[in-house]
Design a protein around this nucleic acid. Structure first.
Lengths: 218, 218
DNA sequence: CATGGTATTAGGGTTTTTCCCTATACATTT
DNA sequence: AAATGTATAGGGAAAAACCCTAATACCATG
Protein backbone atom coordinates (compact mmCIF):
# COMPACT_ATOMS: atom_id res chain seq x y z
CA UNK A 1 0.00 0.00 0.00
CA UNK A 2 1.09 3.54 -0.71
CA UNK A 3 1.88 5.79 2.16
CA UNK A 4 -1.25 7.17 3.72
CA UNK A 5 -2.19 10.82 3.58
CA UNK A 6 -1.23 12.34 6.92
CA UNK A 7 -3.92 14.69 8.14
CA UNK A 8 -4.02 17.28 10.90
CA UNK A 9 -7.42 18.42 12.15
CA UNK A 10 -7.75 21.97 13.44
CA UNK A 11 -11.22 22.47 14.85
CA UNK A 12 -12.35 23.72 18.22
CA UNK A 13 -15.45 21.57 18.61
CA UNK A 14 -14.30 18.26 19.98
CA UNK A 15 -17.35 16.46 18.72
CA UNK A 16 -16.82 17.63 15.18
CA UNK A 17 -13.14 16.81 15.44
CA UNK A 18 -13.97 13.29 16.49
CA UNK A 19 -16.57 12.97 13.78
CA UNK A 20 -14.09 14.01 11.12
CA UNK A 21 -11.48 11.67 12.56
CA UNK A 22 -13.95 8.81 12.44
CA UNK A 23 -14.68 9.58 8.82
CA UNK A 24 -11.09 10.10 7.71
CA UNK A 25 -9.71 7.08 9.49
CA UNK A 26 -12.37 4.99 7.81
CA UNK A 27 -10.61 5.67 4.50
CA UNK A 28 -7.88 3.15 3.76
CA UNK A 29 -5.54 5.80 2.37
CA UNK A 30 -5.83 8.46 5.03
CA UNK A 31 -5.00 8.83 8.67
CA UNK A 32 -5.39 11.55 11.27
CA UNK A 33 -2.01 12.21 12.86
CA UNK A 34 -2.86 15.16 15.03
CA UNK A 35 -5.45 17.58 16.31
CA UNK A 36 -5.58 21.18 17.37
CA UNK A 37 -8.39 23.06 19.07
CA UNK A 38 -7.29 26.56 18.21
CA UNK A 39 -5.28 28.40 15.58
CA UNK A 40 -2.17 28.78 17.68
CA UNK A 41 -1.90 25.08 18.40
CA UNK A 42 -2.65 24.37 14.74
CA UNK A 43 0.37 26.43 13.65
CA UNK A 44 2.63 24.71 16.16
CA UNK A 45 1.37 21.25 15.29
CA UNK A 46 1.73 21.94 11.59
CA UNK A 47 5.42 22.68 12.11
CA UNK A 48 5.95 19.76 14.44
CA UNK A 49 4.08 17.09 12.51
CA UNK A 50 4.45 18.29 8.92
CA UNK A 51 1.15 16.78 7.76
CA UNK A 52 0.18 16.47 4.10
CA UNK A 53 -3.08 18.28 4.67
CA UNK A 54 -4.66 20.39 7.39
CA UNK A 55 -8.43 20.36 7.73
CA UNK A 56 -9.10 23.70 9.32
CA UNK A 57 -12.24 25.22 10.75
CA UNK A 58 -12.10 28.92 10.01
CA UNK A 59 -13.85 29.97 13.20
CA UNK A 60 -11.65 29.01 16.11
CA UNK A 61 -10.84 30.85 19.32
CA UNK A 62 -7.63 32.88 19.88
CA UNK A 63 -6.17 32.70 16.41
CA UNK A 64 -8.82 32.06 13.83
CA UNK A 65 -8.51 29.76 10.87
CA UNK A 66 -7.90 32.55 8.41
CA UNK A 67 -4.89 33.89 10.28
CA UNK A 68 -3.62 30.41 11.00
CA UNK A 69 -3.91 29.59 7.31
CA UNK A 70 -1.85 32.64 6.33
CA UNK A 71 0.87 31.85 8.83
CA UNK A 72 1.04 28.19 7.91
CA UNK A 73 1.13 29.09 4.24
CA UNK A 74 4.22 31.21 4.83
CA UNK A 75 6.00 29.03 7.37
CA UNK A 76 5.18 25.64 5.82
CA UNK A 77 4.36 26.25 2.16
CA UNK A 78 4.25 22.52 1.40
CA UNK A 79 1.25 21.80 3.57
CA UNK A 80 -2.14 21.85 1.86
CA UNK A 81 -4.90 23.65 3.69
CA UNK A 82 -8.50 22.58 3.40
CA UNK A 83 -10.89 24.91 5.17
CA UNK A 84 -14.12 23.75 6.70
CA UNK A 85 -16.95 25.95 7.80
CA UNK A 86 -20.56 26.07 8.77
CA UNK A 87 -21.39 29.31 7.04
CA UNK A 88 -22.38 29.68 3.44
CA UNK A 89 -22.69 33.37 3.83
CA UNK A 90 -19.58 34.63 5.47
CA UNK A 91 -17.15 37.11 4.04
CA UNK A 92 -14.12 34.92 4.52
CA UNK A 93 -14.32 33.16 1.23
CA UNK A 94 -12.35 35.61 -0.91
CA UNK A 95 -9.89 36.18 1.89
CA UNK A 96 -9.29 32.50 2.32
CA UNK A 97 -8.50 32.07 -1.30
CA UNK A 98 -6.13 35.00 -1.04
CA UNK A 99 -4.60 33.47 2.08
CA UNK A 100 -3.72 30.43 0.07
CA UNK A 101 -6.25 27.87 1.21
CA UNK A 102 -6.36 24.98 -1.24
CA UNK A 103 -9.96 24.06 -0.65
CA UNK A 104 -13.15 25.08 1.00
CA UNK A 105 -15.84 22.67 2.21
CA UNK A 106 -19.11 23.36 3.97
CA UNK A 107 -20.00 21.38 7.05
CA UNK A 108 -23.51 20.96 5.78
CA UNK A 109 -22.32 19.03 2.78
CA UNK A 110 -22.31 15.26 2.73
CA UNK A 111 -19.41 13.60 4.52
CA UNK A 112 -18.27 12.20 1.19
CA UNK A 113 -17.73 15.74 0.00
CA UNK A 114 -15.00 16.19 2.56
CA UNK A 115 -13.32 13.00 1.42
CA UNK A 116 -13.51 14.12 -2.20
CA UNK A 117 -12.04 17.43 -1.19
CA UNK A 118 -9.13 15.80 0.64
CA UNK A 119 -8.28 13.66 -2.38
CA UNK A 120 -8.53 16.60 -4.74
CA UNK A 121 -6.35 18.82 -2.58
CA UNK A 122 -3.82 16.04 -2.01
CA UNK A 123 -3.60 15.76 -5.78
CA UNK A 124 -2.61 19.39 -5.99
CA UNK A 125 -6.00 20.54 -7.19
CA UNK A 126 -8.01 23.33 -5.70
CA UNK A 127 -11.34 22.25 -4.32
CA UNK A 128 -14.42 24.34 -3.80
CA UNK A 129 -17.63 22.99 -2.37
CA UNK A 130 -20.13 22.81 -5.24
CA UNK A 131 -22.60 24.83 -3.18
CA UNK A 132 -20.10 27.69 -3.21
CA UNK A 133 -18.98 27.54 -6.78
CA UNK A 134 -21.80 29.78 -7.88
CA UNK A 135 -20.95 32.61 -5.57
CA UNK A 136 -17.32 32.61 -6.51
CA UNK A 137 -18.16 32.60 -10.17
CA UNK A 138 -20.38 35.60 -9.61
CA UNK A 139 -23.46 33.54 -10.31
CA UNK A 140 -22.48 32.85 -13.86
CA UNK A 141 -21.90 29.13 -13.41
CA UNK A 142 -25.36 28.30 -12.09
CA UNK A 143 -26.59 26.37 -15.05
CA UNK A 144 -23.25 24.78 -15.77
CA UNK A 145 -22.92 23.36 -12.29
CA UNK A 146 -26.41 21.90 -12.53
CA UNK A 147 -25.68 20.30 -15.84
CA UNK A 148 -22.56 18.71 -14.47
CA UNK A 149 -24.77 17.07 -11.89
CA UNK A 150 -22.62 18.46 -9.14
CA UNK A 151 -25.15 20.68 -7.51
CA UNK A 152 -25.76 19.81 -3.90
CA UNK A 153 -29.43 19.87 -3.10
CA UNK A 154 -29.92 21.03 0.40
CA UNK A 155 -32.13 19.28 2.89
CA UNK A 156 -35.55 20.59 3.82
CA UNK A 157 -36.39 21.27 7.45
CA UNK A 158 -38.44 18.12 7.68
CA UNK A 159 -35.65 16.03 6.24
CA UNK A 160 -33.10 17.45 8.65
CA UNK A 161 -35.44 16.90 11.56
CA UNK A 162 -35.93 13.27 10.61
CA UNK A 163 -32.23 12.63 10.08
CA UNK A 164 -31.38 14.20 13.39
CA UNK A 165 -33.84 12.01 15.25
CA UNK A 166 -32.53 8.94 13.46
CA UNK A 167 -28.99 9.84 14.48
CA UNK A 168 -30.16 10.18 18.06
CA UNK A 169 -31.29 6.57 17.92
CA UNK A 170 -35.01 6.86 17.31
CA UNK A 171 -36.70 4.30 15.05
CA UNK A 172 -38.85 5.46 12.15
CA UNK A 173 -41.87 4.35 14.14
CA UNK A 174 -40.90 6.43 17.17
CA UNK A 175 -40.26 9.45 14.98
CA UNK A 176 -43.61 9.00 13.27
CA UNK A 177 -45.36 8.91 16.66
CA UNK A 178 -43.40 11.95 17.79
CA UNK A 179 -44.21 14.06 14.76
CA UNK A 180 -47.69 12.61 14.35
CA UNK A 181 -47.03 11.34 10.85
CA UNK A 182 -47.18 7.96 9.14
CA UNK A 183 -44.11 5.75 9.32
CA UNK A 184 -44.25 5.82 5.56
CA UNK A 185 -43.73 9.54 5.53
CA UNK A 186 -40.71 9.27 7.78
CA UNK A 187 -39.30 6.62 5.48
CA UNK A 188 -39.78 8.91 2.51
CA UNK A 189 -38.09 11.89 4.17
CA UNK A 190 -35.25 9.69 5.25
CA UNK A 191 -34.81 8.20 1.78
CA UNK A 192 -34.97 11.60 0.09
CA UNK A 193 -32.49 13.12 2.49
CA UNK A 194 -30.09 10.23 2.07
CA UNK A 195 -30.38 10.40 -1.70
CA UNK A 196 -29.58 14.12 -1.56
CA UNK A 197 -26.54 13.50 0.62
CA UNK A 198 -25.44 10.47 -1.32
CA UNK A 199 -25.26 8.30 1.76
CA UNK A 200 -26.67 4.87 2.39
CA UNK A 201 -26.52 3.72 5.98
CA UNK A 202 -27.39 4.70 9.50
CA UNK A 203 -23.76 5.18 10.41
CA UNK A 204 -23.47 7.75 7.64
CA UNK A 205 -26.42 9.58 9.13
CA UNK A 206 -24.73 9.63 12.51
CA UNK A 207 -21.54 10.98 10.95
CA UNK A 208 -23.44 13.66 9.14
CA UNK A 209 -25.27 14.57 12.33
CA UNK A 210 -21.99 14.88 14.22
CA UNK A 211 -20.62 17.20 11.55
CA UNK A 212 -23.74 19.32 11.88
CA UNK A 213 -23.32 19.32 15.65
CA UNK A 214 -26.86 18.06 15.85
CA UNK A 215 -25.93 15.67 18.60
CA UNK A 216 -25.69 18.45 21.12
CA UNK A 217 -28.64 20.72 20.46
CA UNK A 218 -31.75 19.96 22.52
CA UNK B 1 -50.21 19.08 35.99
CA UNK B 2 -48.11 19.84 39.01
CA UNK B 3 -45.31 22.28 38.68
CA UNK B 4 -42.28 20.68 37.09
CA UNK B 5 -39.06 20.08 38.96
CA UNK B 6 -36.69 22.84 37.96
CA UNK B 7 -33.23 21.48 37.38
CA UNK B 8 -29.82 23.11 36.97
CA UNK B 9 -27.05 21.08 35.36
CA UNK B 10 -23.48 21.78 36.43
CA UNK B 11 -21.12 19.75 34.31
CA UNK B 12 -18.13 20.79 32.26
CA UNK B 13 -18.50 18.31 29.40
CA UNK B 14 -20.96 19.81 26.99
CA UNK B 15 -21.85 16.46 25.50
CA UNK B 16 -22.75 14.99 28.86
CA UNK B 17 -24.66 18.12 29.75
CA UNK B 18 -26.68 17.80 26.59
CA UNK B 19 -27.23 14.10 27.15
CA UNK B 20 -28.56 14.72 30.65
CA UNK B 21 -30.74 17.52 29.38
CA UNK B 22 -32.16 15.22 26.73
CA UNK B 23 -32.94 12.63 29.35
CA UNK B 24 -34.39 15.01 31.93
CA UNK B 25 -36.52 16.96 29.50
CA UNK B 26 -37.97 13.67 28.30
CA UNK B 27 -39.59 13.30 31.72
CA UNK B 28 -43.00 14.97 31.90
CA UNK B 29 -42.40 16.28 35.42
CA UNK B 30 -38.92 17.72 35.03
CA UNK B 31 -37.26 20.49 33.09
CA UNK B 32 -33.74 21.82 32.76
CA UNK B 33 -33.76 25.53 33.48
CA UNK B 34 -30.07 26.24 33.37
CA UNK B 35 -26.57 24.99 32.83
CA UNK B 36 -23.12 25.73 34.19
CA UNK B 37 -19.78 24.49 32.95
CA UNK B 38 -17.77 25.15 36.09
CA UNK B 39 -18.27 25.46 39.82
CA UNK B 40 -18.18 29.22 39.91
CA UNK B 41 -20.91 29.61 37.34
CA UNK B 42 -22.88 26.89 39.12
CA UNK B 43 -22.88 28.91 42.35
CA UNK B 44 -23.96 32.06 40.56
CA UNK B 45 -26.65 30.30 38.58
CA UNK B 46 -27.95 28.56 41.68
CA UNK B 47 -28.51 31.96 43.30
CA UNK B 48 -29.98 33.50 40.19
CA UNK B 49 -32.31 30.69 39.15
CA UNK B 50 -33.12 29.04 42.48
CA UNK B 51 -33.63 25.57 41.00
CA UNK B 52 -35.20 22.71 42.93
CA UNK B 53 -32.24 20.46 42.24
CA UNK B 54 -28.71 20.84 40.95
CA UNK B 55 -27.16 17.91 39.12
CA UNK B 56 -23.48 18.49 39.73
CA UNK B 57 -20.40 16.81 38.33
CA UNK B 58 -17.84 16.74 41.09
CA UNK B 59 -14.87 17.16 38.80
CA UNK B 60 -15.12 20.54 37.14
CA UNK B 61 -12.48 23.15 36.37
CA UNK B 62 -11.80 26.22 38.55
CA UNK B 63 -14.10 25.49 41.45
CA UNK B 64 -14.80 21.80 41.70
CA UNK B 65 -18.13 20.24 42.50
CA UNK B 66 -17.25 19.57 46.12
CA UNK B 67 -16.45 23.18 46.88
CA UNK B 68 -19.40 24.40 44.86
CA UNK B 69 -21.65 22.02 46.79
CA UNK B 70 -20.44 23.37 50.13
CA UNK B 71 -20.95 26.96 49.10
CA UNK B 72 -24.36 26.34 47.63
CA UNK B 73 -25.37 24.41 50.71
CA UNK B 74 -24.56 27.43 52.86
CA UNK B 75 -25.82 30.17 50.56
CA UNK B 76 -28.93 28.41 49.28
CA UNK B 77 -29.82 25.71 51.79
CA UNK B 78 -33.13 24.94 50.10
CA UNK B 79 -31.57 23.64 46.90
CA UNK B 80 -31.05 19.89 46.68
CA UNK B 81 -27.70 18.76 45.34
CA UNK B 82 -27.34 15.55 43.39
CA UNK B 83 -23.73 14.73 42.55
CA UNK B 84 -22.76 12.88 39.44
CA UNK B 85 -19.41 11.30 38.80
CA UNK B 86 -17.49 8.90 36.67
CA UNK B 87 -15.35 7.42 39.43
CA UNK B 88 -16.37 4.65 41.74
CA UNK B 89 -13.09 4.86 43.54
CA UNK B 90 -12.52 8.44 44.44
CA UNK B 91 -12.09 9.80 47.91
CA UNK B 92 -14.77 12.43 47.57
CA UNK B 93 -17.62 10.28 48.71
CA UNK B 94 -17.39 10.84 52.46
CA UNK B 95 -16.57 14.49 51.91
CA UNK B 96 -19.54 14.99 49.65
CA UNK B 97 -21.87 13.57 52.22
CA UNK B 98 -20.29 15.86 54.80
CA UNK B 99 -20.65 18.78 52.39
CA UNK B 100 -24.36 18.16 52.35
CA UNK B 101 -24.95 16.54 48.97
CA UNK B 102 -28.33 14.88 48.90
CA UNK B 103 -27.45 12.19 46.43
CA UNK B 104 -24.66 10.55 44.54
CA UNK B 105 -25.02 8.85 41.16
CA UNK B 106 -22.43 7.19 38.98
CA UNK B 107 -22.25 8.05 35.30
CA UNK B 108 -21.82 4.41 34.45
CA UNK B 109 -25.22 3.58 35.88
CA UNK B 110 -28.27 3.32 33.69
CA UNK B 111 -29.87 6.59 32.71
CA UNK B 112 -32.96 5.55 34.65
CA UNK B 113 -30.87 5.58 37.80
CA UNK B 114 -30.38 9.31 37.44
CA UNK B 115 -34.09 9.84 37.05
CA UNK B 116 -34.78 7.72 40.13
CA UNK B 117 -32.22 9.72 42.01
CA UNK B 118 -33.78 13.03 40.99
CA UNK B 119 -37.21 11.89 42.16
CA UNK B 120 -35.84 10.56 45.44
CA UNK B 121 -33.89 13.71 46.17
CA UNK B 122 -36.82 15.93 45.20
CA UNK B 123 -38.87 13.97 47.73
CA UNK B 124 -36.42 14.93 50.43
CA UNK B 125 -34.79 11.51 50.53
CA UNK B 126 -31.08 10.88 50.31
CA UNK B 127 -30.03 8.85 47.30
CA UNK B 128 -26.94 6.76 46.87
CA UNK B 129 -26.15 4.81 43.74
CA UNK B 130 -26.68 1.12 44.55
CA UNK B 131 -23.17 0.40 43.31
CA UNK B 132 -21.83 2.63 46.05
CA UNK B 133 -23.99 1.51 48.93
CA UNK B 134 -21.59 -1.28 49.82
CA UNK B 135 -18.60 0.94 50.26
CA UNK B 136 -20.45 3.39 52.43
CA UNK B 137 -21.79 0.60 54.60
CA UNK B 138 -18.25 -0.65 55.08
CA UNK B 139 -18.94 -3.71 52.99
CA UNK B 140 -21.51 -5.02 55.40
CA UNK B 141 -24.46 -4.62 53.07
CA UNK B 142 -23.13 -6.74 50.23
CA UNK B 143 -25.48 -9.64 50.55
CA UNK B 144 -28.41 -7.50 51.55
CA UNK B 145 -28.15 -5.35 48.48
CA UNK B 146 -27.98 -8.40 46.25
CA UNK B 147 -31.04 -9.91 47.86
CA UNK B 148 -32.95 -6.70 47.33
CA UNK B 149 -32.20 -7.10 43.66
CA UNK B 150 -30.72 -3.65 43.56
CA UNK B 151 -27.19 -4.58 42.72
CA UNK B 152 -25.98 -3.05 39.51
CA UNK B 153 -24.22 -5.60 37.40
CA UNK B 154 -21.56 -3.94 35.44
CA UNK B 155 -21.04 -4.43 31.75
CA UNK B 156 -18.27 -6.60 30.38
CA UNK B 157 -15.80 -5.18 27.89
CA UNK B 158 -17.49 -6.96 25.02
CA UNK B 159 -20.88 -5.68 26.03
CA UNK B 160 -19.62 -2.10 26.27
CA UNK B 161 -17.91 -2.41 22.93
CA UNK B 162 -21.10 -3.61 21.28
CA UNK B 163 -23.27 -0.94 22.88
CA UNK B 164 -20.86 1.75 21.83
CA UNK B 165 -20.89 0.63 18.22
CA UNK B 166 -24.67 0.45 18.27
CA UNK B 167 -24.83 4.01 19.61
CA UNK B 168 -22.55 5.11 16.79
CA UNK B 169 -25.13 3.81 14.34
CA UNK B 170 -23.73 0.46 13.30
CA UNK B 171 -26.15 -2.40 12.68
CA UNK B 172 -25.68 -5.74 14.44
CA UNK B 173 -24.55 -7.16 11.14
CA UNK B 174 -21.89 -4.51 10.65
CA UNK B 175 -20.65 -4.98 14.19
CA UNK B 176 -20.50 -8.73 13.68
CA UNK B 177 -18.42 -8.27 10.54
CA UNK B 178 -16.20 -5.79 12.33
CA UNK B 179 -15.51 -8.02 15.31
CA UNK B 180 -15.54 -11.21 13.27
CA UNK B 181 -18.40 -12.76 15.22
CA UNK B 182 -21.86 -14.07 14.42
CA UNK B 183 -24.73 -11.62 14.34
CA UNK B 184 -26.28 -13.86 16.96
CA UNK B 185 -23.44 -13.15 19.34
CA UNK B 186 -23.82 -9.44 18.91
CA UNK B 187 -27.52 -9.78 19.58
CA UNK B 188 -26.76 -11.70 22.76
CA UNK B 189 -24.25 -9.14 24.04
CA UNK B 190 -26.65 -6.35 23.24
CA UNK B 191 -29.53 -8.08 24.99
CA UNK B 192 -27.44 -8.94 28.05
CA UNK B 193 -26.09 -5.42 28.32
CA UNK B 194 -29.55 -3.91 27.98
CA UNK B 195 -30.93 -6.27 30.60
CA UNK B 196 -28.16 -5.28 32.97
CA UNK B 197 -28.85 -1.60 32.43
CA UNK B 198 -32.60 -2.02 32.53
CA UNK B 199 -33.07 -0.28 29.21
CA UNK B 200 -35.08 -1.30 26.19
CA UNK B 201 -34.48 0.77 23.08
CA UNK B 202 -31.80 2.11 20.84
CA UNK B 203 -32.38 5.64 22.05
CA UNK B 204 -31.60 4.49 25.60
CA UNK B 205 -28.35 3.06 24.31
CA UNK B 206 -27.46 6.37 22.72
CA UNK B 207 -28.24 8.21 25.94
CA UNK B 208 -26.13 5.81 27.92
CA UNK B 209 -23.29 6.19 25.44
CA UNK B 210 -23.45 9.97 25.70
CA UNK B 211 -23.25 9.76 29.48
CA UNK B 212 -20.22 7.52 29.13
CA UNK B 213 -18.72 10.00 26.68
CA UNK B 214 -18.33 7.14 24.27
CA UNK B 215 -19.43 9.31 21.39
CA UNK B 216 -16.15 11.17 21.33
CA UNK B 217 -13.47 8.52 21.73
CA UNK B 218 -12.09 7.16 18.48
C1' DC C 1 -12.70 -30.79 43.23
C1' DA C 2 -17.19 -30.15 42.30
C1' DT C 3 -20.69 -26.76 41.67
C1' DG C 4 -22.64 -22.62 40.42
C1' DG C 5 -22.37 -18.20 38.32
C1' DT C 6 -21.24 -15.48 34.33
C1' DA C 7 -18.90 -14.51 29.95
C1' DT C 8 -18.69 -15.58 25.18
C1' DT C 9 -20.27 -17.72 21.59
C1' DA C 10 -24.26 -19.00 18.48
C1' DG C 11 -28.78 -21.30 16.25
C1' DG C 12 -34.16 -21.46 15.20
C1' DG C 13 -38.16 -19.23 14.51
C1' DT C 14 -41.06 -15.06 14.92
C1' DT C 15 -41.86 -10.24 14.90
C1' DT C 16 -40.61 -5.71 13.74
C1' DT C 17 -38.44 -2.55 10.98
C1' DT C 18 -36.73 -0.99 7.00
C1' DC C 19 -36.39 -0.76 1.99
C1' DC C 20 -38.13 -0.17 -2.86
C1' DC C 21 -41.62 1.41 -5.81
C1' DT C 22 -45.59 3.96 -6.56
C1' DA C 23 -48.98 7.77 -5.82
C1' DT C 24 -51.55 12.14 -4.64
C1' DA C 25 -52.01 17.05 -3.38
C1' DC C 26 -49.95 21.32 -3.34
C1' DA C 27 -46.61 25.06 -4.15
C1' DT C 28 -43.13 27.19 -7.00
C1' DT C 29 -40.69 27.94 -10.99
C1' DT C 30 -40.19 28.14 -15.91
C1' DA D 1 -49.57 24.83 -18.67
C1' DA D 2 -45.79 21.92 -17.67
C1' DA D 3 -42.16 20.61 -14.88
C1' DT D 4 -39.97 20.33 -10.47
C1' DG D 5 -39.81 19.69 -5.62
C1' DT D 6 -42.05 18.93 -1.08
C1' DA D 7 -44.99 16.55 2.15
C1' DT D 8 -47.75 13.01 2.71
C1' DA D 9 -48.54 7.83 2.56
C1' DG D 10 -49.65 2.68 0.90
C1' DG D 11 -48.34 -2.36 -0.60
C1' DG D 12 -45.32 -5.84 -0.72
C1' DA D 13 -40.54 -7.70 -0.25
C1' DA D 14 -36.30 -7.84 2.22
C1' DA D 15 -33.62 -7.20 6.13
C1' DA D 16 -32.87 -6.65 10.79
C1' DA D 17 -33.90 -7.26 15.37
C1' DC D 18 -35.99 -9.91 19.02
C1' DC D 19 -37.09 -13.97 22.14
C1' DC D 20 -35.77 -18.38 23.70
C1' DT D 21 -32.52 -21.83 24.18
C1' DA D 22 -27.81 -23.80 24.64
C1' DA D 23 -22.81 -25.19 24.42
C1' DT D 24 -18.38 -24.18 26.09
C1' DA D 25 -15.09 -22.05 29.00
C1' DC D 26 -13.54 -19.89 33.01
C1' DC D 27 -13.27 -18.79 37.74
C1' DA D 28 -14.28 -18.50 42.41
C1' DT D 29 -16.22 -20.44 46.50
C1' DG D 30 -17.69 -23.82 49.41
Amino acid sequence: MEKKLRILIAEDHKTVREGVKLLVNAQPDMEVIGEADNGEVAIAEAKRLDPDIIIMDISMPHVNGLRAAKRIRSSCPGIKILTLTRHTDDGYLQQLIAAGANGYVLKQSAPGELINAIRAVADGKAYMDPALTNRVMGGYATRTASLRGENKQQLTDRESEVLRLIALGYSNKEIAANLDLSVKTIEAHKANAMRKLGISSRIDIVRYAILQEWMQDT
